[in-house]
């Protein structure tokens, strides 16, 4: 077996249940608060931290820069990369940039449509899809790229990057088979780990895991903190492939405001406990409540 490319990969190989966290870079260059949060609550608790790439198509500071800053603070980043804003040339360039900066974990995503974000007039690119982006990484790792030289031969890179390549899936989509087929293609294209969309239905997740058993890649179940009943209902209404059971909504609305965070943490812990037997980790999306991460992890064990 080859040397693990990143700590994250090593964590999976060690066989222990892996946690990752996530930060959203700011709109502007005031990165300190989010770096502080990461340092305070995530550094010691999770194996790596996702850095979102213009999430929901909202323009923010680039994920590559923030990833590098995390790296500089001793936190391993997972560089999220979407296909929305860059063509294959720019994507490959940024992958080389990341590689040169020591960023190893890359999560390949299609990206939300520009129509969802704050620049709906922008031209959506989607030159490559997430499968193509994974293929691009593999190409670069093999010392070449998607292009050809003047003679029509594959280009040769001067210095080759190495990545630990991840992808995403929605296990509880209303139609799960196309999700599985696409995941199979991603793995075939080079994906080495999977982070899922938020899951609230352990039964469905277990069934999903059974159906992708053959893929033999580590899967981290996505855990999105439910901050209150309203948010839970919103997710049911608006987030594709996410179904929050009524029971959770009830618990959140029954509880007094000051105890709500506690219930939130409980729910996350409960979910992880119910699913940890069938997956390799949990990706925690706290939506700003990074301070809860240690407690969630505690509640999960």
């Amino acid at each position: 077996m080859n040397e693990p490319v990143s700590n994250l990969q090593q964590a999976f190989e060690s066989g222990r249940f892996v946690f990752t966290g996530e930060i959203g870079p700011p709109k502007g260059i005031n990165v300190e608060p989010c770096l502080q949060e990461a340092k305070k609550y995530l550094k010691a608790t999770v194996a790596a931290v996702n850095v979102t790439d213009g999430q929901t198509a909202v323009m923010r500071i680039g994920s590559i820069a923030v990833s590098k800053m995390l790296l500089d603070r001793g936190i391993e980043p997972i560089f999220q990369m979407t296909c929305r804003d860059r063509n294959r040339i720019a994507l490959q360039m940024d992958l080389l940039s990341a590689g040169s900066l020591g960023i190893k974990n890359v999560l390949a995503l299609t990206g939300d449509h520009v129509a969802m974000g704050d620049h709906p007039e922008a031209k959506p690119v989607f030159d490559l899809d997430s499968v193509g982006l994974l293929q691009a990484m593999v190409k670069l790792e093999s010392g070449t790229d998607f292009g050809k030289d003047m003679k029509g031969n594959p280009n040769q890179l001067d210095g080759i990057p190495k990545f630990f390549k991840g992808c995403c899936v929605t296990p509880c989509a209303d139609e799960v088979e196309p999700q599985i087929i696409k995941l199979e293609k991603k793995v075939e294209a080079g994906a080495q780990f999977v982070q899922t969309q938020a899951v609230y239905d352990p039964g469905a997740f277990e069934e999903f895991m059974r159906r992708i058993e053959h893929l033999k890649v580590p899967v981290m179940v996505g855990i999105v903190m439910l901050k209150n009943a309203g948010m839970a209902k919103y997710m049911n209404r608006c987030v594709p492939g996410v179904r929050v059971p009524d029971e959770f909504i009830q618990r959140l609305s029954d509880v007094a405001k000051e105890d709500r965070q506690k219930v939130s943490i409980e729910i996350c812990g409960e979910l992880i406990r119910k699913m940890k037997h069938c997956c390799q980790g949990a990706h925690l999306m706290t939506l700003g409540w990074d301070h809860c991460v240690p407690e969630i992890i505690k509640a999960a064990t």
Partner: peptide
């Protein structure tokens, strides 16, 4: 709407 060639994105609902 994204002209994807390998299957649906996570936005399919």
């Amino acid at each position: 709407s994204k002209s994807l060639v390998n299957g649906p994105c996570g936005g399919t609902n």
